[in-house]
Amino acid sequence: MNRSTEQVLRDHLRRRRDGDLEGDLRVNYHPQVRLLSAEGVHHGHDGVRYLAGILRSYVEDGDYSYRQVLTDGDVGMLVWSGRCVADDIALHDGVDSYVVRDGLLVAQTIHYSSAPLDQHPDS
Rank of each mutant, 00 (worst) to 15 (best):
Y64P: 00
Y66I: 12
Y66H: 10
R67K: 10
Q68E: 14
Q68M: 13
V69E: 04
V69D: 03
V69G: 06
L70W: 04
L70Q: 09
T71H: 04
T71D: 12
T71A: 04
D72A: 11
D72Y: 03
G73W: 13
G73C: 12
V75H: 15
V75E: 13
G76T: 02
G76I: 02
M77W: 13
V79L: 15
V79Q: 11
W80D: 07
W80Y: 14
S81V: 00
G82F: 07
G82S: 10
R83V: 02
C84R: 08
V85T: 14
V85S: 11
A86F: 13
D87V: 07
D87T: 13
D87A: 14
I89T: 14
I89G: 01
I89V: 15
L91G: 01
L91T: 03
L91V: 10
L91Y: 06
H92P: 02
D93F: 10
D96K: 08
D96C: 14
S97W: 05
Y98S: 06
R101F: 10
R101I: 04
D102H: 10
G103L: 07
G103S: 12
L104E: 07
V106H: 12
A107G: 10
A107F: 11
Q108T: 10
T109E: 06
H111F: 14
H111T: 07
Y112P: 05
Y112N: 08
Y112E: 01
S113C: 04
S113P: 00
A115L: 01
P116M: 02
P116Y: 00
L117N: 03
Q119S: 14
